[in-house]
Amino acid sequence: MNGLEQFKDRNVSQNYYRVKIEPYPKTPWERFKRVVRRSLRLELFVGLKITLMEMLRFKIHTIQYPKEKLPISPRYRAVHKLLRLLESGNERCIGCGLCEKICISNCIRIDTRPDENGRKIPTEYTINFGRCIFCGYCAEVCPELAIVHGQDYEHASEQRAQFALKEDMLTPLDKLKEQKEYPGFGAPTPAADKLIKKTPLAY
């Protein structure tokens, strides 16, 4: 089976085999006997031997986390980023409030007001990561591709409610060059150009 076919097969038990399990000890005496048996057989060192040999041969398969990190898929949904427009450096978020509305954990809040040019701006944007379930709806609904999922999945915290403010998520102006277009959830598909109908112009 290849491709999607394998997922369509719902008979999950096909490749299973039974593990032989010896009967559980019933009396305290039997339990004691099992402990003595297992201790004296030094099974622990059988495992340790393998580890030791692999170590001496320098055939290490583990990733040296946190020094090393695996590359993750662009569609991975980790801690959010707020993007800027590449040309002007302006914030992309227009404060439409759709992310706030769609968020099923109700963990986004934004404050908006008109700026000095009369345009709508989000003065503050927060996500409560203690509640976020990283569903990706916010990134998907955003019409401006302003709120996106980043690749940074480390956000252990001492507090249950861990808030990210706008400045934590927004691309810093000096890092604008490094900002990548987001290909993940909610981004236009590669064929999007073909699907767009142009509005006729009178001039």
Binding site: R119, K120, P143, K197, Y203
Partner: peptide
Amino acid sequence: CGVCDKSGECDLQNKNLEFRVDSQEFSAR
């Protein structure tokens, strides 16, 4: 609509949805 105060309770939005207008075929200067 993304920034408009009326969005969500706008008659134009609602009726566009109701009559399925999703593109503009005419134009005027």
